[in-house]
Simulated assay, not measured.
Amino acid sequence: MSEEPRSKAEDALVPSYRSSAAARMVNIPVATLRVWERRYQVVGPTQTPSGQRLYSSQDVRRLVLIKQLVNRGHGIGMLARMDTAALQDLMDEADQTESVLNGAVAPVERVRSDEAGRHHESIRVLLVGKDAALRWQDHLHSFKDDGVLVVKAIDGSPASELSLRGVVADLVLADLPALHMETVDWLVRLQRLVGARQILTVYGFASSQVTGALHARGAILHRAPVAAPELMQSLMDAVRGWRSVARGLRHVPDPAPSPRFDSALLAGLVQSMPRVACECPQHLAHLVTLLGQFESYSADCESREPADVALHAYLYRVAGHARALMEEALITVAQAEGIPVPDKAQATA
């Protein structure tokens, strides 16, 4: 009796992909995939009797969503606790925000500086707190030539939060008398709702646990009272950081090519080049190894450090391309010596 053909939904649950294939489809190193599983239990792959992990199409889809959301600044710890449907909803929300940023609300609005004659990307600020607008709106307005623009001020009540539908901001500036753990979740929700890059908080009282939780999410904290110049300096320093990393990411193509060699292949290739009088092959192999290690380290930081996710994404890309360049240099030296160059794909075939 022949078996009924599986549906697409059933096929998606069949464990079919090894760790290396799953990591390649998600565009992360295998080392990062293992870190995500060990620390956060992001997926539960099937294990064969030999210990080989196998991933289904549904596992890969979930990993892709998590990687995309981590790249947009969401914490891996939070994402790991969400089911795949919730991850997709969050991704859809992020896509909608991005589409607004790219068109509907003129997010790349430029503000001309009368003094310098230069153009600045606008820095849209959401003010949060009963007295936030009273304390900070005039100070923010004085930086209008630098692109600072208050897009909305809310007192923090549920009704005022409902008024944020369609509002897009780059920074949430909250002025609150006290911070609690529920405040952390609330501020992060507001940040996500308006698509903000960062939270800047002025507060009266908070425990070290609460301030630590906000620091872990990349928030900038100032204990009240804080002088306006100090607060504005913090804001502009944050903006310079965003712009610097954004410029770097625009100039580094993504993704970098996958590694051509593992440690055994590298060692074998160097040993096969005895005619090279200098030690260049050894030095190139050493650089390939170090850059590969830094590439994995940056990917790990990208998943563990939501405060600096864009910076580590940039470092991960740069390290990957530098590693690929050094691999090409080593291959060129080997070919000049007439030595065939194997790669990992050939070695595992």
Score class of each variant (00 low, 15 high):
residue 171 L to Y: 09
residue 159 A to I: 10
residue 156 G to M: 09
residue 166 G to D: 03
residue 159 A to K: 06
residue 171 L to H: 06
residue 131 D to Y: 04
residue 171 L to K: 08
residue 159 A to H: 13
residue 137 Q to V: 10
residue 160 S to R: 13
residue 155 D to E: 12
residue 152 K to N: 10
residue 134 L to T: 14
residue 135 R to I: 02
residue 156 G to Y: 08
residue 133 A to Q: 10
residue 138 D to L: 15
residue 141 H to G: 08
residue 144 K to G: 12
residue 143 F to E: 13
residue 136 W to C: 04
residue 157 S to D: 13
residue 149 L to M: 15
residue 144 K to P: 00
residue 137 Q to G: 02
residue 164 L to V: 09
residue 136 W to Y: 15
residue 153 A to S: 13
residue 128 V to E: 02
residue 148 V to D: 05
residue 166 G to H: 07
residue 156 G to R: 06
residue 157 S to C: 11
residue 136 W to A: 04
residue 134 L to S: 13
residue 146 D to F: 13
residue 169 A to R: 05
residue 138 D to E: 15
residue 130 K to T: 11
residue 163 S to L: 11
residue 128 V to N: 01
residue 134 L to I: 05
residue 161 E to H: 13
residue 138 D to I: 08
residue 167 V to H: 05
residue 158 P to L: 11
residue 135 R to D: 12
residue 139 H to S: 15
residue 134 L to K: 15
residue 154 I to N: 01
residue 141 H to C: 10
residue 144 K to L: 11
residue 168 V to W: 02
residue 164 L to I: 01
residue 131 D to A: 09
residue 157 S to E: 11
residue 171 L to G: 09
residue 163 S to W: 08
residue 169 A to Q: 06
residue 142 S to K: 11
residue 130 K to I: 09
residue 170 D to I: 07
residue 127 L to P: 00
residue 127 L to R: 02
residue 155 D to H: 12
residue 152 K to F: 07
residue 152 K to V: 04
residue 166 G to P: 08
residue 147 G to T: 08
residue 128 V to Y: 05
residue 155 D to I: 05
residue 168 V to N: 07
residue 138 D to K: 10
residue 171 L to A: 02
residue 171 L to V: 15
residue 168 V to H: 11
residue 142 S to V: 00
residue 170 D to R: 14
residue 152 K to M: 12
residue 153 A to L: 07
residue 127 L to E: 00
residue 163 S to Q: 15
residue 143 F to I: 10
residue 161 E to K: 14
residue 149 L to N: 12
residue 146 D to V: 09
residue 127 L to F: 02
residue 139 H to L: 11
residue 169 A to Y: 13
residue 128 V to S: 00
residue 169 A to N: 11
residue 169 A to K: 12
residue 142 S to D: 13
residue 129 G to I: 05
residue 143 F to A: 09
residue 153 A to M: 09
residue 162 L to T: 13
residue 150 V to C: 06
residue 158 P to V: 13
residue 151 V to Y: 02
residue 160 S to M: 05
residue 139 H to C: 00
residue 136 W to L: 11
residue 167 V to D: 03
residue 164 L to H: 03
residue 147 G to L: 13
residue 137 Q to W: 09
residue 140 L to T: 02
residue 157 S to K: 05
residue 164 L to W: 06
residue 142 S to E: 03
residue 162 L to N: 14
residue 152 K to A: 13
residue 166 G to I: 09
residue 159 A to Y: 02
residue 128 V to C: 03
residue 142 S to A: 15
residue 145 D to C: 09
residue 164 L to F: 02
residue 153 A to R: 00
residue 140 L to S: 04
residue 152 K to L: 05
residue 155 D to Y: 09
residue 144 K to I: 07
residue 154 I to F: 09
residue 139 H to A: 15
residue 130 K to S: 08
residue 129 G to T: 00
residue 127 L to I: 08
